[in-house]
Nucleic acid binder design. Structure first.
Length: 583
RNA sequence: GGCCCCGUAGCUCAACUGGAUAGAGCGCGAGACUUCUAAUCUUGAGGUUGCAGGUUCAAGUCCUGCCGGGGUCACCA
């Protein structure tokens, strides 16, 4: 239970009381009544829009409704003042005891503060990078976003499965196999020259070639299909192993890996398309050329096997088979999502790169069709990451294979910095990742600024022990039982108010599927804390540790521990380690 | 041309899914500063939220149409 929902309940009770005694009409929906922090703290602690929302249906003017509500609310001990303001807001000032009461709650619940329950099962698929090479920084954003979203959804009560779909069946895997075979011949002493166009040039395939040479010495004499088959079976697990290691270095781990190959092998692709076929959603037909001024030069009308995705809001029907009769990528993707549905997931989230935006509608159409509307797919898109160093973009050339890998970035700046920075921008907006900023030790670096706030509080606690407080004095349990009345200053209450916002922030961030809000919240909370610290420079009575003021010190330590707890909790939601000390 | 995203202070971005006088940081102006853990602090200026309509008690937020930027557009992965 958080403070805002408590006060909201109080407002509703007051409104019901007014209805009961006939001051307001019986039939009045309270659905849109809300309580929120005012934008300007001088307006009070909380504000409700009740009067404005209810005025029209009640046939009254907003300020009259507000006057009734104010009178009723003031009957409660929780409300110190209630004032009508602006077009009909009711501004509330809470009894200080209510705010102070939040601190023991946080100290007792620890980093579990803000946890919610009962939000249901949910499947989130993210990364799903092709197993044809190491992950690059672009993948890092999807990985961090997906993982942070998964943590956020767990925090807010979902039972989450983190899924990775392995594209191990397409033609790019053949390219992988051929590239590995070339490396095998190289290992065996053949001069292969430069890597031909169309094959993967990266050095990371050399170990695969060595592995092939070592364990399949006769492979070169086999027919080509066999060679490719064997090379795949060796290369794919090695690539996936590498991907898992890279993800682990970022603190990302999936619960479930679904192989595309397995969907072909066990007939899942055929089966899921049969389901659509029996609903009459598959037909053979010819697509219109894409509308516009420049149709592709090689466009030819062609009969294809199509899915009626335009029945479900897509702009066009979509091909399931290529002109050569093999499956398009869409077909096994349908099977992949059908597989999730049959495993009992009706809430699905996919995290994709921005270049796949045009694919969203058809996939959602397919999910709706194949689940008869029972399941829903949300697709969250991650935009590009631009690496910056010394004010210049870091040059990356895919062709030469000299792209910056995820691992290089993590090794240089650490997983915490990568994770935090990836969440300093909305997921669908482009992001600059600036090495200079991330490595800076100043408030310009948000990672540093937030972690430093936590470390600084830990430091005050260490000082407290030096200053004569015992280990037992400074446990959260003991601090929670202290008299908190010495906390009086507006700056202290500003910090408390922001702590009270944490559960609401989590709920709205989860609902909007926007984990970056957690990062922004943490920056604000850190700013509030640092501001309080800085006030202590000028105003000695605000210093956390003061001589001959044991009661006051304990109360302030309780506040600091509560702040550290929420910082640690929020950092945990985005997968960043709360440091105890900055070195 | 269709669809999607974006347009907010000089710059980089917020704005808790419709709330009050649109907020931070950087930069700029002015001042303070051997500090409980330090990697600064205080304060000032700076805005017709791209434009024009509409819905609403209330619009940066929702709807429509323009303008400008980006992405994407049979079979590709």
């Amino acid at each position: 239970m958080n403070l805002f929902s408590e006060i909201e309940a109080l407002v509703r009770d007051s409104l019901k009381a007014l209805q009961a005694r006939g001051a307001l009409p019986e039939q009045l929906s309270l659905d849109r009544v809300g309580v929120e922090p005012p934008r300007d703290a001088s307006h009070g602690d909380m504000a409700t829009n009740a009067a404005m929302v209810l005025a029209k249906p009640a046939g009254l003017n907003p300020r009259d409704v507000a006057a009734l509500l104010v009178e009723e609310l003031l009957k409660s001990d929780a409300i110190e003042t209630a004032e009508i303001a602006g077009p009909g807001f009711v501004n509330l000032r809470l009894a200080p005891a209510l705010w102070l009461g939040l601190l023991p709650t946080i100290l007792e619940q620890g980093t579990g503060f803000g946890d919610q329950t009962g939000a249901g099962k949910l499947n989130i698929e993210y990364v799903s990078a092709n197993p044809t090479g190491p992950m690059h920084v672009g993948h890092a954003r999807g990985a961090v976003f997906g993982d942070a979203l998964a943590r956020l959804l767990e925090k807010t009560g979902h039972e989450v499965l983190r899924e990775y779909y392995i594209n191990d069946a397409g033609s790019q895997v053949d390219v992988l196999a051929r590239s590995a075979l070339l490396r095998m011949r190289e290992t065996l002493g053949e001069d292969i020259g430069s890597i031909p166009e169309g094959l993967y040039p990266g050095d990371y395939l050399i170990p695969v070639g060595q592995e092939l040479a070592k364990n399949h010495p006769d492979l070169g004499s086999q027919d080509e299909a066999t060679q490719v088959q064997v090379a795949k079976s060796v290369a794919l697990p090695m690539m996936m192993e590498r991907i898992r290691e890279d993800l682990a270095a970022l603190g990302v781990a999936h619960d479930f890996f679904l192989s595309e190959q397995s969907l072909h092998a066990d007939g899942s692709v055929d089966k899921s398309l049969d389901v659509l076929d029996t609903k009459g959603l598959i037909y053979k037909g010819v697509l219109e050329p894409p509308k516009g001024k420049t149709p592709p030069p090689d466009w030819e009308p062609q009969e294809q096997t199509l899915f009626r995705s335009s029945d479900f809001g897509d702009d066009s029907d979509r091909a399931l088979k290529k002109s050569d009769g093999s499956w398009t990528y869409f077909a096994p993707d349908i099977a992949c999502h059908f597989n999730k549905v049959t495993r009992g997931y009706t809430q699905m989230i996919d995290v994709w790169g921005a270049d796949h935006i045009g694919y969203i509608k058809r996939m959602q159409s397919a999910v709706t069709a194949i689940s008869e509307g029972e399941a829903s797919l949300e697709v969250k898109v991650c935009n590009l990451v631009k690496l910056m160093r010394g004010g210049e973009p870091v040059k990356m050339s895919k062709r030469s294979g000299s792209f910056i890998t995820l691992r290089e970035v993590v090794d240089e700046v650490g997983k915490d910095a990568v994770r935090f920075m990836m969440l300093t921008r909305k997921n669908d907006a482009p992001l600059d990742f600036d090495f200079d900023v991330v490595k800076d030790k100043s408030r310009d670096n948000p990672v540093f600024y937030v972690q430093y706030a936590h470390a600084r509080i830990c430091s005050v606690l260490r000082n407290a022990r030096q200053a004569g407080f015992s280990e037992a004095d400074v446990t959260d349990a003991n601090l929670a039982s202290q008299n908190l009345d010495p906390l009086k200053d507006p700056a202290e209450f500003a910090l408390i108010r922001n702590l009270a916002n944490y559960p609401r922030m989590l709920a709205s961030a989860a609902e909007a599927r926007e984990p970056h809000r957690v990062a922004f919240y943490l920056m604000e909370l850190a700013a509030d804390f640092h501001a309080l610290w800085n006030l202590g420079k000028e105003r000695l009575e605000l210093r956390f540790l003061q001589d001959d003021d044991r009661a006051g010190n304990l109360a302030r330590l309780a506040l600091l521990r509560a702040a550290a707890t929420v910082l640690a909790s929020g950092l945990d939601v985005i997968g960043v380690t709360p440091e105890d000390e900055m070195r």
